[in-house]
Structures are given as C-alpha cells and as structure tokens.
C-alpha cells in the first residue's frame, strides 16, 4: 500500500478554434494515506478525469508533481475507466492476463473472477457481456496488477440502480480482501458515502478543494441505506457550500 501526494499547480488546455485557453486545475494539493479509500466529489466537467489522467501518467502537460510512494518511476497504476475499455478481440481472461507483469502468475486471476462472480464468463468475448459484467472485468483488471494506486473514474455510471449497488458491494468486498490506496471519482454523494474513508469536495473549473470530510460510518453499516441517507442529510446541513456541487 502506498502513500500519494498530488500537487498540481496548473493544468491548462490550449485554445481550440474560437474557445480560448481553459484553466482546468489551479493549485490543487491532495494527500492520500496508504490503504485509504478517497472519493472525489465534484460537478461534471470540473476536471476530475483530467486529474486521474495526470496521476496515471496519461497527461504530462501540466505544472506540478505527483509522488506515489517512494518510487519516482513507473508506479503501478490500476485505472478503472468510465468506459470499461476492454479489448473486444480478447476474451475476459485474456484482457486481464495481458495487464499482468511477467513475474505474476495468471492463477491470481481465478480468485478475483470468483469474488466478482465471473468465473463462468472468463472465456467470453466482451461484446457478449452486459455493461455491468464489463465493468466488473475492468475492476478485476485494476486489482490484478496489484497497483500502488487504484484510480476509478465513475465506474458505475449508466448502470441501473440494483446492478450498480451489486457491483459496488462486490468492489468493497474485493477491496477489503486486498486493500489498496483508492482514488474514486463520482458526482453521486450517496455512492461516495457508501464507499469512502474520506470525501473530498471539488469546485467547478479551475478545480480546487472546497472541503474534506471523513466518513465516520463503520464499514459494516454502509450497506444500510438509512445510515447513508442520514449522513448525507447531515452533510448537506453542516456544509451548505457542497449543495451546489451535486
């Protein structure tokens, strides 16, 4: 498990056509403790995905630095994208195996498939999977690489409520078995409360931290909708500034 420090002084998108420069992130400082599950909550278009791309090393055009653990080169990143991004010409198992290091045994995939209830579908091609199943494969792929940090970009968006809840519970089960440092992006406050150790509320672009709140609800009680709803109401009353973000 790895500690992460994020300092993004600025991230600007160049002008395109009539639109001028767009300052997406300004002076953003975040810190994640090893093994912590942190949810970033912010309005659509505030730069959450941009931030995850910067952390994942997919976007290097920014000012600042990202320090993941003590390593300075090639930290292992598990990235669960908003769209599952599975290779359609490879089976479920092949999609996961391809991400493994040479020194990792393919056998580590079996228990992950079992927890996610996908053992029966391991030789199926992604086009034959439902969206929920594809999302589960994407989650397994993220965990399989045993990452220093697991980035999740609204992985349950556009799932129907029961499926989203089922996948969320399976994700938590997997995370509790194999704790990793997780940065989870969402704009659904209930989902964030159900999953996170800590919530970080972000402003619209240029993105900055508005408030950080620790979720005091014990993990065992997170399955009860009432506990989550009560805490949500309390948050909205105590921190009126976050209402406009949701």
């Amino acid at each position: 498990m790895t500690h992460i420090r994020i300092n993004v002084h600025s991230k600007t998108y160049p002008a395109v056509g009539q639109a001028g420069h767009h300052l997406a992130i300004a002076n953003l400082n975040l810190s994640l403790n090893a093994g912590e599950f942190v949810c970033l909550v912010g309005p659509s278009g505030c730069g959450k995905t941009t931030l995850l791309n910067i952390i994942a090393g997919l976007d290097n055009d920014y000012e600042g630095d990202i320090i993941i653990g003590k390593q300075h080169t090639h930290p292992k990143i598990g990235y669960i994208f908003q769209n599952p991004r599975l290779l359609p010409w490879r089976t479920v198992r092949e999609n996961i195996e391809l991400t493994l290091d040479k020194n990792q045994s393919p056998a580590i995939i079996d228990p992950l498939l079992e927890v996610m209830q996908l053992t029966h579908a391991q030789n199926v091609y992604p086009e034959r999977l439902s969206l929920g199943m594809s999302r589960k494969v994407s989650i397994i792929r993220g965990f399989a690489v045993e990452p220093d940090v697991l980035l999740m970009d609204e992985p349950f968006v556009s799932l129907d409520a029961p499926t989203a809840r089922q996948v969320r519970e399976l994700l938590l089960k997997l995370w509790q078995q194999r704790p990793h440092t997780v940065l989870f992006v969402t704009h659904d406050l209930r989902e964030a409360i159900a999953l996170a150790d800590r919530l970080i509320f972000l402003s619209a672009a240029p993105m900055a931290v508005i408030s950080e709140i620790t979720v005091p609800i014990p993990r065992a009680e997170r399955y009860h909708e009432n506990a989550i709803e009560t805490f949500r109401q309390q948050l909205l009353n105590d921190y009126p500034e976050i209402k406009q973000l949701l």
Binding site: N53, A56, G57, L58, I77, Y79, F81, N83, R85, L87, L98, T99, R141, V145
Partner: peptide, 9 residues
C-alpha cells in the same frame, strides 16, 4: 481509449 489503457497498464 484503448491505446491509453495500454499505456496506463
């Protein structure tokens, strides 16, 4: 998207 996934992993 797939190329980014390959880079990330």
């Amino acid at each position: 998207d797939l190329l980014e996934m390959a880079r990330c992993y």
